[in-house]
Design a protein around this nucleic acid. Structure first.
Lengths: 323, 323
DNA sequence: TCTGGACATGTTATCGGTAACACAAGACAA
DNA sequence: TTGTCTTGTGTTACCGATAACATGTCCAGA
């Protein structure tokens, strides 16, 4: 494997010049730069990350804190991990997974944190390394998330567009910004349609939503659509409606949220609001790395637009209805 | 952060002695060793991986080749990844994911390969770095896998124990060792029960098994149990039987294989043969790292015992039947 | 013509480890 | 007593990059 020195020799310059071409190209004259570039590609130069890390006093580690109880088989997290790992690997960073049990704030270059509750914010103050959150927050911290309000607003509007006359929200009872935003998107859309909101809140588990909907089934007239805060909840709702003899999508509609694997389970498959989770994970990774490179400079936030995926649990939009 | 030098100073020895205590403790007298250990724990010494990598001429990268078409949302792979990443992170190795598209055999310290077909073996010869396979093989290559034969033998026996009188195998049509072993476990068990085997083979997709079973449904008398080579297939079978009006588990049984998330989807939940996928991934990671440390010395193979998870798609074992 | 500063490039020391070699002390055979 | 071998420890150089500093060149202004 070619080293800086090899490139330097081939280009008849010093190692330092090659290093500058890589890190501060504007400080080198164009002629030398081109020489160096030529030599690099000729030797197929690949930087040695260990050497770079050592010289820069970096650990090449980013820690991921998942503050909520995590189900290791949950595809949502797996996708997040995949995206994150992807971004980190590009720069040869290692990802260390920390769970609630092992909150070891040991040596590393930066943090990604997800599953923040309001009470967790104090803890963050104690950390001095670059942090990026996965999930919206109101504390001015850098984050990546999907537009949760837009998501449920979209699904609620779509429910009306499909001709359902009653639209109910099945939400998550967490004191978490994303849960509130998803409910808010629903209530905003209901207000725009001059329709009275009806909200249920529960743990994010399919058998819970199954129970709740079964219990209240008498309250739901035909032509009701259930807008859910997650696919997991939606799956339980779908099951409950079917067991009660409700016809999906003809008499009842169900719309989920997330679009990560679960939506394709069961039949009919779920109409859902899809988040590009893997891509979001990737961008989160890029954001921490940037922040590390820039010595902790604020990165702002990046919000992804969720997309509606129409499938079997809603009937087609009605003619003449606003989309 | 304390360095080797700090520890050396505190223990009044040279850096080299400390390094030896870490890597070749048998070459240092007990007195010095204890001194060094004391100094290390007093300073809470953590080795610097970048420095170690640089000195050892390592890249701290392991590449994972997934040779079959991978569905990034497939929980099976995600679990494998999680376990693998876990093991690698412990030694501060980075995991690089290579797919069929980008088979770049670039710089790294070792490889993990999964989804091998027989035709892929030639390609492996060209690589000189340590390799460990995830998945059994007959070429004498080091690998980690579950005992596939035992798995389907267990599920087949269990089907009889539950009192089902006809047992059918729903298999995967891949020229892959694991697919053959799962079928073999079934045929062995059938022979032991003096029952005629009946095998179907198809792509590993739930809607395919759904179609196939629907089409052949007339051939299956009541009291038939479907032993499947994967949970994915089993889910399709369950759906087909239910649509055809078959009662699960009273008249028909279904047993899956894998036990990674999918088995908990749908109702009733699947009786399945569970592989400890994450643990297996972890051990695969450990194995490559060992092999790297030992300069490519053979590691043999590690076979995990799968466990039967009885759930709703089979009725309870009959009294007096052999377990 | 001389001085000083801006700019481009090279030299040196350093990051934290490890291998290879050097060296000293004790054991033992001739 | 001397020579050789073994064993335990220290010294030195080096892995591949970078920051800090040193040097050299050019040009502007006095």
């Amino acid at each position: 494997m070619a080293t800086l020195g090899d490139v330097a020799a081939k280009a008849h310059v010093s190692k330092m010049t090659v290093s500058r071409v890589i890190n501060h190209p504007e400080k080198v004259t164009k002629e030398l730069r081109d020489l160096v570039y030529a030599a690099m590609s000729e030797l197929n130069y690949q930087p040695n990350f260990a050497a770079k890390a050592l010289a820069n006093n970096r650990t090449q580690i980013v820690k991921l804190f998942i503050l909520e109880r995590m189900d290791t088989v949950e595809p949502y997290y797996m996708n997040l991990l995949a995206g994150l790992a992807d971004a980190l690997d590009e720069k040869n960073y290692a990802l260390q997974l920390m769970t609630k049990n092992s909150l070891d704030v040991g040596t590393c270059d930066g943090y990604v944190v997800t599953g923040m509750r309001n009470k967790d914010y104090g803890w963050l103050e104690t950390v001095e390394k670059p942090i990026v959150l996965y999930g919206e927050n109101q504390m001015g911290l850098d984050y990546v998330d999907t537009d949760n309000i837009l998501g449920t607003r979209t699904s609620t509007n779509y429910a009306f567009a499909c001709g359902y006359t009653t639209v109910v929200f099945v939400g998550i009872n967490l004191p978490d910004s994303f849960a509130e935003s998803r409910e808010k998107g629903y209530t905003l859309a209901m207000a725009a349609h001059h329709a009275p909101p009806k909200v249920f809140q529960m743990d994010n588990r399919s058998h819970i939503s199954d129970q709740v909907i079964t219990k209240h089934f008498a309250e739901f007239p035909q032509n009701t659509c259930f807008v859910c805060a997650s696919d997991r909840l939606a799956i339980g709702v779908e099951r409950a409606v079917q067991h009660q003899g409700g016809q999906i999508p003809d008499d009842y509609g169900v719309i989920g949220f997330d679009g990560v694997f679960l939506d394709r389970i069961g039949s009919p498959q779920l109409t859902t609001i899809r988040q590009p989770v893997q891509k979001m994970g990737y961008e989160t990774g890029r954001m921490v790395l940037h922040k590390i490179e820039e010595n902790g400079a604020p990165q702002g936030h990046e919000v992804f637009v969720p997309t509606l995926v129409p499938r079997g649990t809603t009937r087609p939009p009605q003619e003449g209805q606003p989309k």
